[in-house]
């Protein structure tokens, strides 16, 4: 995240659009969505050097890079991207708890990707059709996320409809993360989104993929007392602090360091 550092010697690189959001609710929404993208990018980056095959190593890193690019645009609407990423404490992050969940095995990561990329594609598609401060980014990112969703669906089908072992693991991943999906549809002020419609479309899409993959749609509740998720209020799960420590320690140990 050193755009201005690397270019500073000969000129300046600036982001012309979108303009900073003046509306406090829209700024809070940009922070929430930016944190979602940043935290998931960091989690996916943890697969570098650990993925089951080289192609997936590259795929997960490329998806992480797309998300990091989206996070940079969104966080720049809120303030200084580096300060926001590297100098905030855990309680100040507004990402949903789904994206901070540890990678688990490959099937677990694919379940998280299926749930999140389906949500993010629907979200960006809705934002792209409006004319708010996030429209420009959403119109661009929705095309990138379509490939993320395609990747997740492909692997869900392959693992769910694969061997007994791959099926078992894929089902376990889908079951374990199900309770974090209700939080995706808590209304975000400032975006003017119909979250009920988003949720219905998400359920429809995920149900179709899981069914085609021969998997069982988890029957545990996603909402109400059993719902996990208060990430938008700054409450996070245990492993998030450790993830942040790894993400932030270099910047905090060497302030202002650049490549």
């Amino acid at each position: 995240m050193t755009a201005t550092d690397t270019a500073g010697a000969t000129g300046t690189v600036a982001t012309a659009a979108p303009a900073p959001a003046a509306d406090p609710a829209a700024t809070a929404a940009a922070l929430a969505l930016g944190d979602d993208a940043l935290v998931l990018a960091q989690r996916l980056g943890e697969w570098a050097g650990n993925a089951p095959v080289l192609e997936e190593e590259v795929a997960l890193a490329n998806i992480a890079l797309d998300l990091l690019g989206q996070a940079r645009v969104l966080l720049s609407l809120v303030g200084d991207e580096d300060e926001l990423a590297f100098l905030r404490e855990e309680r100040d992050f507004r990402n949903v708890q789904l994206v901070e969940q540890p990678n688990g095995d490959f099937a677990h990561t694919i379940a998280r990707q299926l749930y999140f990329s389906t949500y993010q594609r629907l979200l960006y598609a809705a934002l792209a059709s409006g004319d708010g401060p996030l429209t420009g980014l959403a119109a661009k990112a929705v095309k990138e996320v379509a490939y993320h969703q395609d990747h997740a669906e492909h692997w869900t089908l392959r693992l769910g409809d694969g061997t007994e072992e791959s099926h078992r693991r894929m089902q376990a991943g889908c079951d374990a993360l199900w309770r974090y999906t209700g939080e995706l549809f808590q209304p975000l002020d400032g975006l003017g989104l119909d979250t009920a419609a988003l949720e219905a479309a998400w359920l429809d899409s995920v149900t179709t993929v899981l069914t085609r993959a021969g998997l069982t749609v988890p029957d545990a509740p996603r909402t109400g007392a059993w719902r996990a998720g208060a990430g938008r209020q700054g409450l996070h799960t245990e492993s998030f602090g450790r993830m942040l420590a790894e993400m932030q320690h270099l910047h905090r140990s060497h302030p202002g360091a650049a490549w």
Partner: peptide, 22 residues
């Protein structure tokens, strides 16, 4: 920036625009 500097433009600013999407 380097190309335009070499052509005699001393002050070059590059801005990135997202819309319309490439």
């Amino acid at each position: 920036e380097h190309a335009l500097h070499a052509h005699g433009v001393p002050d070059v600013t590059v801005v990135t625009v997202l819309a319309p999407a490439w």
